[in-house]
Design a binder for these strands. Structure first.
Lengths: 246, 246
DNA sequence: CGGACTATTGAGCCCTTTCAACTCGCGTGG
DNA sequence: CCACGCGAGTTGAAAGGGCTCAATAGTCCG
């Protein structure tokens, strides 16, 4: 899959380079940890809670989400995963993870055995810290989600989500000023934002009527980036990107 | 402060030993990273968002919380910190953190320069993985909070909080079957659980009337542990403790 | 003894949910 | 070719959980 400078870990690398400099040697080492690739259709469960894992999975393309269920059927999405995300890197230390990860669209993945990651931690301290940083930035995303769920209204929450997702996708080259593709149903979004599907629909309409963003046909069109940021009170510091947003 | 086997990192060590075995050499190394200690009164800001940090702080005694504010005054607590918590270990990779950390009670802390932590990462790979694990378990706590805020009712949320806090405190010797001290006001709890103070009060009453738990006089008395667990749908797997709960 | 903080309770409102009906587009089978 | 079914989206109406406003009481402390 190596075409010119294009590599498996292209997007992951782009993300890491938004955080810190990565040498060519480190980039090669990072790319070399990935062995087999796989594909999943929408709806497939990529990782199941509680399984013992001996490798971690990189999302090459498509979207996925972490979620937990309550026994009476209530389901909460914990986090959206976008291309370039190392969706279960935390299993390197945790061994088994406490939630499922499902495919929200057709998905391609690459898999890195923990053994190979361990070799990196033995040999490349700076790259190791980047992997660690990856997991701590994931935690920072979690915290912002807590903020949203606890303190933002439905419309603000959706706006913040649109902003955050735009920044995450921009780093891996999948979004620009005008917007991005987001192949999720309104039901998926509702689950992610802790809203009912009906209210999700009305909230999407509200954002459109406010002239901030339009979500339609699996695409997000940003109408007024500054207005959206302001409305959501989106402060991208928690993404810890070096590059100035916007 | 070393009295017999008692050390600064006593509680931190107890927590790590609930996750994995820690050798005596590792325990000594861990203890030795901490240099100066400090005290803060209730209400003090221990760590301020955005500051450049060159060390991480261990909570020796007392309670703290992470929080973020919105510009119009809405404040959301992100996570409770209990004794033995390395409250900003993530600053080791992040350099600056994206939220404040405040003292919810009188607090004692110890401080570890990042330089010393870096020495550990160079010399003690297994202990390094435990430190990394610490940050990934913190993320697991965040995820459970997202679950609570997104999918649990107020009463279930409080019940889950009481269960989780009981397990976290039990590991460091600060809780037993009957309950534990929790020196937080109802306003603190409300902020933590994303509720208004008034509704927090009513929710506390509901838990009491259900015969599950009594929160009064800065103490939590657990009346019916099994009932509480069941009501909250508390599944402690996400804490990743080896010891069987209860 | 006043003041500040904390806890408690009532009442009304509002955001969000639930229930329900209906549309639209699309793929499949008769 | 059309009927049908199904998933996704949309809208209305009513119910409900939690919030806000407001008032009262208890407690600690200077």
């Amino acid at each position: 899959m190596t075409v010119g400078t294009r590599q498996i870990s292209d997007k992951l690398l782009a993300k890491y380079r938004a955080w810190d400099t990565v040498s060519e040697a480190e980039a090669r080492a990072l790319d070399s940890v990935f062995t087999r690739q796989a594909s999943y259709p929408r709806g497939a469960v990529i990782i199941r809670a509680g399984e013992e894992l001996d490798g971690s999975t990189l999302l090459l393309s498509g979207f996925a989400n972490r979620y937990k269920d309550l026994s009476d059927g209530r389901r909460q999405s914990l986090e959206l995963s976008v291309p370039g995300d190392f969706i279960d890197l935390h299993s390197f230390t945790l061994k088994r993870i406490d939630h499922d990860i499902g495919a929200l669209s057709a998905v391609r993945t690459a898999w890195a055995p923990h053994e190979r990651i361990r070799e990196i931690t033995a040999e490349l301290p700076h790259l190791t810290r980047l992997l660690w940083l990856n997991t701590t930035v994931d935690a920072a995303l979690h915290r912002e989600r807590i903020m949203s769920l606890g303190a933002r209204t439905a419309a603000e929450r959706l706006a913040a989500f649109v902003c955050e997702t735009r920044e995450r996708l921009r780093v891996v080259g999948l979004a620009d000023e005008t917007g991005y593709d987001l192949p999720l149903t309104q039901a998926d979004l509702a689950e992610l934002l802790g809203l009912s599907m009906v209210h999700m629909n009305r909230t999407i309409r509200e954002l459109r009527e406010r002239g901030l963003a339009v979500l339609r046909d699996r695409m997000v069109r940003i109408e007024d980036w500054d207005g959206l940021r302001k409305f959501a009170q989106f402060h991208p510091g928690y993404l810890h990107q070096r590059t100035e947003p916007r």
